[in-house]
């Protein structure tokens, strides 16, 4: 699904990713953990194609195709989805209107007609039930005045609607209380299939109690320095990151 080789990226001349490798296959869940400033969110932004970051080396392949030169929307059309750590507000644009536009723009890029309204309605109904989303919520302006939990749930709702191949969840657990965390994690689990893949970026182990990863990677100073299974996350939780840093010396 996703193959990243020797990825190097910088922002404003400052190198953040320094030769990162990762391979994610369909049906897998990968967790990327690491201390603050390791480059976790940068990795998410670079995969999604944020323009402020300059890729200075390496490549990003999605299903065998190099996507590193594609515009962010083209990557989205190819099935990349990023659940933002800080989702933006768009006043006056309802959740429904936003998701409708996103779906139809993606369909347009694929040469398809707009999704018929009744299909859209059916899908919205199904997915909002799946994520325990109140109908009223769908009429509100996108993220405007949303609580932390609502914002994250809205991100996962969009993910459910867009049915991406590769979903990257950037600190989706931050700002969530335990109930919201459970709902969001359950949503992600229900959306998982053998045909898609999920990358979970997180500081803490607690999200991984709900979304159990097949692989855990530790990102440090722009590189993956250690890879293991779910137990690695527990070990990190118990010991912190310092022992990994010391191991590297």
């Amino acid at each position: 699904m996703l193959k990243i080789e020797n990825l190097q990226a910088e922002i404003d001349g400052k190198a953040i990713l320094k030769g990162l490798n990762i391979e994610v296959k369909a049906g897998e869940v990968h967790a990327i953990m690491g201390p603050n400033g390791a480059g976790k969110s940068t990795l998410a932004s670079v995969i999604a194609g944020k323009e402020e970051y300059e890729v200075t080396g390496g490549n990003i392949e999605l299903n065998g195709e190099d996507i590193s030169e594609l515009a962010p929307e083209e990557r989205a059309h190819n099935g990349v989805f990023l659940s933002f750590q800080y989702p933006v507000e768009i006043p006056g644009v309802s959740v429904t209107n936003f998701i409708k536009t996103a779906i139809n723009e993606t369909r347009k890029a694929k040469g398809l007609e707009d999704m018929p309204a009744k299909d859209m309605l059916k899908m919205i109904r199904e997915k909002s039930e799946l994520l325990e989303i109140d109908r009223k919520f769908l009429g509100r302006s996108l993220n405007e005045g949303f609580s932390g939990g609502e914002k994250k749930r809205n991100e996962i709702f969009q993910m459910a609607m867009l049915e991406p191949k590769l979903a990257i969840l950037d600190e989706t657990d931050s700002g969530l209380d335990i109930d919201a965390l459970r709902i969001v994690a359950n949503g992600v689990n229900k959306l998982k299939s053998k045909d898609n893949a999920v990358i979970v970026i997180t500081h803490y182990q607690r999200l991984l109690d709900y979304i159990v990863p097949d692989f855990v990677h530790v990102l440090h100073d722009g590189k993956i320095v250690k890879t293991g299974d779910a137990s690695l996350a527990l070990e990190l939780e118990a010991k912190g990151y310092d022992w990994i840093k010391q191991e590297l010396v």
């Binding site: 999604a48 944020k50 515009a71 929307e73 989205a76 990023l82 933002f84 768009i90 006056g92 644009v93």
Partner: peptide
């Protein structure tokens, strides 16, 4: 903001369409 545009782009909405969406919301 760039962040608003990138957010829309990431959802498959190109910049032109994103501006239209944001402006229509603003003018609603």
């Amino acid at each position: 903001g760039e962040d608003q545009l990138f957010y829309c782009n990431q959802r498959g909405i190109d910049t032109e369409k994103a501006i239209a969406l944001i402006v229509n919301g603003f003018s609603k």
